[in-house]
Write a protein that binds this DNA or RNA. Structure first.
Lengths: 144, 144
DNA sequence: AGAAAACCTACTTTTTTACTCAGGTTTAAC
DNA sequence: GTTAAACCTGAGTAAAAAAGTAGGTTTTCT
């Protein structure tokens, strides 16, 4: 039950953009440095986020990336689904196009994984980037 | 966020043993056939379950496997932890020995994954093999 | 003794992951 | 219009993990 670096880095990058939402576009290289990710690799990952409509790019000098929507309107679930595909502990309970399973109607392990899937989706969909910004602020306050 | 076949097959095998709890030991080959798993492969998997203390083996002719505890006392979480290791969407929030992270105190994505981990553990620990047996019975009744 | 079954270890193949690299295209400041 | 900074694309690759195979040894029941 691990996330790949795609999901992990994807959320990091999106959170970085959220922290600078409202100002100029952020160059990929800047995000990569701040989040400690190879920029060649991040370039590929951010392309996925762009195609999923989660970020917008501004090309050319002084260009960069910005969130496509406000942080309150983008959830962890959105990002993870974009980066890792539909949530599905096992193929036969995928959120979209579940794999065929001959014993689907009597398979009890299947109903277990459906419950796990639903809880996973529930928690990921309940956390927005705005929530994360709020958490970051609180963390900072408690430190001082 | 996928399970490997280890966890998937592991739960299937354990559920199979649960369905025959209280009678003679079940040969591995029988479980493998019923659950449609290569018996060579299942042999490796069940060795993990045995070392984790979840099943007992009876050697020799008429031998086989039985659950080490009653079905109400074995949870999906027990089985998945045995088969896949500690629950941890990313290494830095592993249930045991979380990986070092230089920004641990200010990393917000980390707190997200901790929440995901806790929900995962919660749902898996709340379902026992006995619960699954009950579900199976209900499913059967509704069919008739 | 013979058969059935667990046990053990090592090997192989396949798939996925996590990158890297090379070369392009577009834009905007100057 | 040149140049630099940025985005875009696709191919390639090394390492790791996953999934499965194979063959032999030991134990115990009959």
């Amino acid at each position: 039950m691990r996330l790949s670096t795609r999901g992990h880095y994807g959320l990091k990058a999106m959170f970085d953009l959220a922290q600078h939402y409202g100002s100029e576009p952020i160059p990929l290289k800047t995000v990569a440095e701040r989040q400690n990710i190879s920029d060649n690799y991040l370039e590929q990952l951010i392309a996925i986020l762009r195609k999923a409509g989660l970020v917008k790019s501004i090309r050319g000098s002084q260009g960069g990336y910005i969130l496509a929507r406000e942080p309150g309107n983008i959830t962890v679930g959105d990002i993870i689904r974009a980066m890792e595909g539909p949530i599905a502990p096992v193929d036969c309970v995928s959120e979209v196009e579940p794999a065929e399973c001959t014993q689907a109607d009597s398979c009890i392990t299947r109903t277990v994984w459906a419950k796990v899937r639903d809880r996973l989706a529930e928690v990921m969909d309940s956390i927005s980037l705005a929530d994360m910004l709020r958490d970051a602020e609180n963390l900072l306050e408690n430190k001082q």
